[in-house]
């Protein structure tokens, strides 16, 4: 009996020690977009929190290209030792794989937590004289409406395609290098519509008409949700999550999950994120894993329904 107890204590001590040892050195976080971009800035807001909680530096590695697919592909091949993580958005992980041949899928990654979820809205230029979504649809039925955004396959593109499909109209899509390039075209009057996270819309000085979400967004309390104006329950948001390569040990993941939870709960983090127009949202590992798998499947169906996926 005493022998068993002693062995059990030693066992706990050893595994406890092993647990207590992670992380022993700096952790590399791969961001599959260039420095200063939206996904990059979104992670850097969390970076100081995680560094403080885990007690180790978190080194950002930017590997940009092709909507994040180059970085994600590289990440999928990295060692699952807990010292290689990635911060990736919805597009890279759940829509891009269905649109072109990539070397990863939803089983390549272990979701750890979600940190930000920005609902998207339909926006127009404040000088365009369009006051509501109905006005916009009427304009589309009467003539041509152009919409802009990042290259096809991105969430803004899918969002505007879904809105058009829901109201049985067509938007002529004009791809740009990114959301801000499209915003410039909207402000300049060359393009009519941009579907983007509401926070970004407000930062650009555009006018959101409707929010593609279940509830209103804090930053734009007067903007109705699509449900409220009687439209189909479209839900489009850009979310960001922390991932580890598949096969990373469970205890490491649990520790990271906890760190993520604590990090996203700090006042400093919440304030910085909210100030930038983003919406902090924490989903723990259990919930996020299910959500992620669901999104991967849902987006595949969605892309087929809109006609983007063959």
């Amino acid at each position: 009996m005493i022998r068993t107890l002693t062995l059990a204590c030693i066992g706990m001590f050893v595994t406890g020690a092993a647990l207590a040892e992670y992380p022993e050195k700096s952790i590399e976080v791969l961001v599959p977009f260039n420095a200063g971009s939206g996904p990059d800035a979104s992670f850097r807001m969390l970076q100081p929190e995680l560094e403080e909680i885990l007690g180790q530096p978190m080194v950002v590695r930017n590997v940009g290209g092709a909507g994040g697919t180059v970085g994600a592909a590289q990440f999928a091949t990295q060692a699952a030792d807990g010292y290689h993580l990635a911060f990736m958005p919805v597009g890279t992980t759940t829509t891009q794989p269905h649109l072109r041949p990539v070397t990863y899928d939803d089983s390549s990654f272990e979701p750890i937590c979600m940190t930000i979820q920005d609902p998207m809205g339909v926006s127009v230029s404040p000088d365009a004289g369009i006051e509501s979504l109905d006005d916009l649809i009427a304009k589309a039925k009467a003539g041509t409406v152009t919409s802009g955004g990042p290259p096809p396959g991105s969430l803004p593109h899918i969002g505007q395609a879904a809105v058009a499909a829901a109201y049985d109209v067509e938007f002529k899509y004009v791809p740009h290098e990114g959301g801000s390039a499209a915003a410039k075209s909207i402000l300049g009057g060359q393009v009519d519509v941009l579907v983007d996270p509401v926070g970004s819309i407000l930062n650009y000085g555009l006018k959101p008409l409707v929010v593609l979400n279940g509830s209103r967004v804090d930053g734009a309390p007067d903007v109705p949700t699509i449900d409220e104006i009687g439209g189909k329950p479209l839900r489009y948001s850009i979310w960001f999550g922390l991932f580890a390569p598949a096969g990373t040990p469970d205890d490491v993941l649990a520790k990271l999950d906890k760190a993520c939870q604590d990090g996203t709960a700090t006042e400093r983090y919440k304030e910085t994120v909210a100030n930038s127009g983003r919406t902090p949202r924490f989903m723990d590992r259990a919930e996020f894993s299910g959500f992620f798998k669901q999104q991967y499947q849902d987006n595949a169906d969605l892309l087929t329904a809109i006609g983007l996926k063959k």
Binding site: G36, S37, N203, T272
Partner: peptide, 13 residues
């Protein structure tokens, strides 16, 4: 681009 990202992190939008 980087400057703007940096400013954003410091709550200057």
């Amino acid at each position: 681009v980087v400057l703007m990202g940096a400013l954003t992190i410091h709550n200057v939008i």
